[in-house]
């Protein structure tokens, strides 16, 4: 646990040692503001809720989260520091978890930066704040799922661009499986059981539940197990390929 925290602290500080952190937070806030107020029409809807805000998060994360996670392991491999890290008295799970938690905490901070939107909604009307908290929690967990995918793909390669593209494609596939047109098409080519199985892995539908205020155990368990599964995959990949 102590080692995990030490690695997490180093990784977290790393984001602020370069402009990465500031660029990411500014872009995240600008885009989420643009989507919420312009495209989402927060004012025009005349509803005191944050649907217009949360609805865009999956698509925002699709590009921003892989940009954050792409360097996690690719950079360690390119610069050779992975050899240093893996010969210190830490285990591979400690290192993977420490780095993942650092990035996840960072997205949490970016998310906290959107609190002014929440305040605005409360100022303009009388929203159900429980729903909004559920939305934030859902958004945070979905970001965790994307990050775990990004961490695993980052472990595959020394090249951050490849890591980025691979993880966008993987994340996209977990989003598309929740879109009605895609599902309707799948219905025509696959048996019902397969389609239902694929649909149950959709980030979109699990997040939709939560952003509507339904904190259900199964949605949290879903994102939790996605994180666990991809970090486990991350460990397998690193163990097999760390020296290449």
């Amino acid at each position: 646990m102590k080692h995990t925290i030490t690695i997490m602290k180093r990784e977290f500080a790393g984001y602020f040692a370069t402009p990465v952190a500031y660029v990411f937070i500014v872009i995240f806030l600008l885009l989420s503001g643009f989507f919420t107020f312009d495209l989402g029409g927060l004012y025009e809807n005349r509803q005191a809720d944050m649907q217009a805000f949360f609805r865009w998060h999956p698509w925002l994360y699709l590009f921003l989260v892989p940009a954050l996670s792409m360097r996690l392991w690719a950079e360690e491999r390119r610069s050779g520091t992975i050899e240093l890290l893996m010969t210190l008295p830490v285990t591979l799970p400690q290192a993977i978890l420490g780095k993942f938690l650092a990035t996840w905490a960072f997205t949490g901070i970016a998310l906290l930066g959107t609190i002014p939107t929440w305040i605005t909604v409360n100022y303009l009307g009388d929203p159900d704040n429980g729903t909004i908290i559920a939305g934030y929690l859902g958004s945070f967990f979905m970001a965790g799922g994307f990050l775990a995918i990004g961490s695993a793909t980052s472990g595959l390669t020394k090249n951050q661009v490849i890591a980025f593209v691979l993880s966008v494609v993987l994340c996209l596939s977990f989003l598309l499986t929740g879109l009605p047109p895609v599902m309707e098409w799948l219905d025509t080519v696959l048996p019902k059981l397969a389609v239902d199985t694929i649909a149950s892995f959709s980030f979109l539908s699990h997040f939709d539940d939560m952003s509507r205020g339904l904190i259900e155990g199964r949605d949290l368990v879903f994102f939790g197990s996605m994180i666990a599964f991809f970090l486990f995959l991350n460990a397998l990949v690193l163990d097999a390929r760390k020296a290449h």
Binding site: I7, K9, G14, S79, G80, T81, E83, L84, L88, P89
Partner: peptide, 24 residues
Amino acid sequence: PEGAPAYPDMTAEAFLRFIADIRG
């Protein structure tokens, strides 16, 4: 290790502090 890899963004002091923390 060959080429003495170290985290380039860190200062020498922060890097050694990280190593010391990991070493307990």
